[in-house]
Design a binder for these strands. Structure first.
Lengths: 197, 197, 197, 197
DNA sequence: GATGAATGAGGGTTCATTCAT
DNA sequence: AATGAATGAACCCTCATTCAT
């Protein structure tokens, strides 16, 4: 149980992570300066260094936070009483929805080797793999049950992830579809690759 | 008809564009320095500026070249005597193959607003739109013929483009599949969204 | 009323402006590097950019500061109880003295169109005009009083300004005259163009 | 007597010198590139290097040419049958006229130490001194004759030179005065410093 | 905890200069 | 004689990072 001070510190860290995620989504990692991240929160960049060792560290925490949230999302869905096909659809819809809301495609869309190395790279890749394997096992179950076609799991999973991540490149709030409708729509099309009638 | 000297100049420009595309695919735009691009071709930074006004201009030319090639590719396919479904599959396979070969997902994968403005942005968006509309019309024909399901064209096109672009994030030459097999495989799965049995 | 910190900041800015003025007077604008200006004050280049947006901005502030000081000088003289001829002589002497002390002929001696554009150019030209018109009105008063010859004001003013600005090109501290004597001497000769016996 | 080829070479050199003078007058020395000077003559910068060792050399030749012309001008005037006062006025008018026509204040207006060193500096200073001493001796003769006031020659000469050089800073072809009228006007005012009624 | 200030490494860009053709 | 091409040094500027207060 955290003390009040620790809670405040944690809150501040979360805010900075959110700010970083947001700016990076808008401008890209290298074009985002510590100044951008800080002034977005009305603080000075000096302060950010009180909470994070350096920009790299902040990037790492942000990325990690994003992946962990995605994993929690999928875990929640797995708990529900749904058919495998429904679980898959729900997973895709939620992921899409999450990306649009956070307006960050940073999560899975970029090659971690470009940004991380050593232990950090390993951690990120592990989290990605954890996430991927949860989707994979969903697909595997569907195949085993006979409700899914007998596809190559890796390829199909990457098709799904690619299509979902791409949504932030073209979705516009001013467009035809609401966020939820779009998320639903995309996942229903992707389902066609897998699910038998 | 170009003189010998003009041909050499053109060749050099093309080389630099290729080098830029390659480095940007590997490290991202901002992390790629003019020095990187030049030394990759055993030239000096200064020489690159003989051929391109600045980094922005080089980026623009690179992007443009990539999109124009993609458009030529799809135009070629349209000429062939194939069913609509076959044309679509061919388009997808070729695009995937092209991305893997060039090792650049830069083509359609990034938001042009992050990198371009003014006339350049307009040019790039126009080229993207041209490319998109060619896929769209392929889908529209399929629907009209009755060989494709009656889908929302924009959404399905973006699913397809997203899935294809994502391939360079995860494809590894050392992996299970050959480049051609993979391209074929992805497009055959994506086809399921559209094509009736 | 400025806080202590603000005062320090202002002092630093003033120091940098002085340093810039001095280096530019010695070497010319283009030959003066930000490094020169900074190391002259035992700071690093980077620090200068904390106080000024860029070299152009620093140049502009410097020029402005110089002109504003000149205008203040002439205003002070106008307040004094002197004859018009004495005021003119005092103005010329003070201007000459100021130029020699600051060792910068940059003030009025260069064409602003070479260095400024847009709003900056307008500001500088306005300040120049303000300064010029103050000399002009001094001459006009003398003419009206009948103590000055009926000359073309613009031409005579430019002769005076030109002669005064030129002094920094040839004055040498090691020479025959003291700074004050020279300033006095030049202005007494120039007076001959205007003042009746 | 020069061969045809040598004449052509000399002509080309003169053209380049003129071009350099013109560009430098417009933009200043450092802001003028070899490219500017060359393209102004529809040649490439490589060619300029065929005629001049380097930019410094070109600057030196240009400056020298300007000063030599000024000296020739004053020598011509000395030959004429005119009073000393008329010779002085003619000298001033011609110098002013020359500066406006060539649109270069570079001649005497800048400190040679900023641009030259060693033998070049010595040559330029010698030429300047030659020019100055010719004006000085004109003034000295006037004083001796009794037609000029007994002034400090150096100071008055510098006043005159300063006022004349400054004209290119403010003269505008679109203005009230024609070039010749202005030259005449300035010199008649300056005469007042020296000439007795 | 926060911040104003300073720093230095690194990257984009310009341009005088050289050289092969 | 002329030029296209290449080079590298120098310069402006940005920004992650540090630190005293």
């Amino acid at each position: 149980m955290l003390s009040l001070r620790e809670q405040k510190t944690q809150k501040k860290k979360d805010d900075i992570v959110q700010s970083a995620l947001q700016m990076i989504a808008e401008k890209g990692y290298h074009a985002t300066t510590m100044e951008d991240i800080a002034s977005n929160l009305l603080m000075t960049k000096g302060s950010v260094y009180y909470y994070f060792k350096n920009k790299q560290d902040l990037l790492f925490q942000s990325q990690k936070s994003l992946l962990e949230q995605s994993i929690r999302n999928i875990d929640d869905i797995m708990q529900k009483h749904l058919t495998t096909a429904e679980k898959l659809e729900e997973t895709m819809a939620q992921h899409t929805d999450y990306l649009i809301t956070e307006r960050t495609g940073f999560g899975m869309g970029l090659r971690p080797e470009q940004f991380f190395e050593g232990g950090q790279l390993k951690d990120i890749i592990d989290l990605r793999d954890t996430y991927s394997s949860k989707i994979d096992s969903l697909i595997a179950i569907g195949i085993e049950e006979g409700s899914f076609h007998d596809v190559d799991i890796t390829i199909v999973r990457n098709i799904i992830v690619g299509a979902m991540n791409y949504v932030i490149e073209w979705y516009s709030p001013e467009g035809t579809w609401s966020q939820a409708t779009l998320a639903r729509s995309i996942s229903s099309y992707l389902k066609l690759i897998l699910v038998k009638d």
